[in-house]
Write a protein that binds this DNA or RNA. Structure first.
Lengths: 234, 234
DNA sequence: GTCTATAGAGGGATAGAC
DNA sequence: GTCTATCCCTCTATAGAC
């Protein structure tokens, strides 16, 4: 625990995070990392054992506080509600806001981290499924439980699915900001991620409040006329 | 155009798709691809020029029909509505259903393609931004226009953002099925992607119908009491 | 069009001096 | 803890025989 904020260890972590976020883990070499960090190549193996060890350290440094914040936020929301189910909007914010905070605070990584998080799921798969699954799973389970109390008519599987939708809706725009610039004409991304994530809250709240999908029939309830042409072609 | 479905070219495409989907483009070597395809290593460069050429061909083969279907579906929905704005649900289905179809039809790639699509945005970035941007951009713009007519009170930037949320909500669960298994206890993924995507429709419809977020204040309208504790910690 | 053989670059890791 | 030098591996791409 030699913690000069500028120690070799820290410089490596920062450089690796930067490059992983920019071009992905697989395409980033230790040579590129140590060059950017202005540190010797062998230092990575000394401090982290291997490239995999470094990758895990980079992700863990950000994911742990993120998930802790999500859990503690949820506890606070529940406490404030007494025994009653908390407001759905509060729960959504408890989940989403920690990501925004992470991206706003340069000390926690700032905007760079956001892209890193976006790559988490694709990239991380091979590297540290075990750690990742453990940490993340607890968060999802806790949120699932609370959501089940707020939305008693929504079957558990549909709660899980909608949580997956939420994670995707949050991750993708963060990760693919640059791509979205190309695709949508750049104004989208002039706004910061901050704004975007705040707009995600009402979107997600409304999505969760949508009526459950009945399992056998395909949405039979509404009174709209169905334009059958929609279904005819691939 | 030698089109025996089992030509060397096709075998390479199939093997590459399989491996890209499983472990990503960067970590998949031409050696692994040609071994799986039971084809000579040099064949890749003969048929596709380079690894990048192969990557582009693999993605293009799936993305082109997908986006064409989205556009033609949208046209049909608009035609069926006469001059009036079509139903929001029809538009969402026009966008989402082609992905489901793709995943259902083994001839179009089947379940494998779904993971490939999930990696599209992260992976594709470096390879063929140009092609990708052109093709995809048209789709997003057309949907944007229609959505703007359906939801005249929602500012264009918020329509764009919500489209990004939708793409993420669709992409992530598809791409990370295996990860979701670990995280949520496996029942989620016993259901097929088919079911999941159908559940995405009402989620997205409700999300788009959520009231616009006013730009200056942070959601001042609702009558709920706000538990300020949510905001206190990171 | 298909194959073998190999060039040539770049990767991760480590031994051993300091 | 830091550095140099190097080992050994895998990769993409290509030349040239068939």
């Amino acid at each position: 625990m030699t913690n000069l904020l500028d120690s070799t260890r820290e410089r490596i972590l920062a450089a690796a995070e930067e490059l992983f976020a920019r071009t992905g883990v697989a395409t980033t070499s230790l040579r590129a990392i140590t060059a950017l960090a202005r540190v010797n190549l062998a230092a990575v193996n000394y401090h982290f054992g291997s490239k995999d060890g470094l990758v895990e350290a980079v992700y863990r440094r950000r994911l742990e506080p993120l998930n802790r914040a999500r859990l503690s936020n949820l506890e606070k929301v529940e406490a404030a509600a007494g025994g009653a189910p908390p407001a759905l909007e509060d729960v959504m914010e408890a989940f989403i806001v920690p990501v925004v905070k992470l991206g706003q605070d340069p000390a926690q990584g700032g905007p760079t981290v956001m892209r890193l998080l976006g790559q988490t799921h694709t990239e991380a798969a091979g590297y540290f499924r075990t750690y990742f699954a453990g940490e993340y799973r607890e968060v999802l389970e806790r949120y699932q439980d609370v959501l089940a109390r707020i939305l008693p008519d929504l079957p558990p599987e549909q709660i899980k699915n909608r949580l997956a939708f939420l994670v995707g809706a949050m991750t993708y725009p963060i990760a693919e900001r640059q791509l979205l610039e190309l695709l949508t004409g750049e104004e989208v991304c002039r706004q910061d991620i901050d704004t975007m994530m705040k707009q995600l809250v009402p979107f997600a709240v409304a999505g969760f409040r949508a009526p459950p999908v009945s399992s056998r029939r395909k949405r039979a309830s509404s009174t709209r006329k169905k334009s059958s042409s929609t279904r005819s072609r691939q």
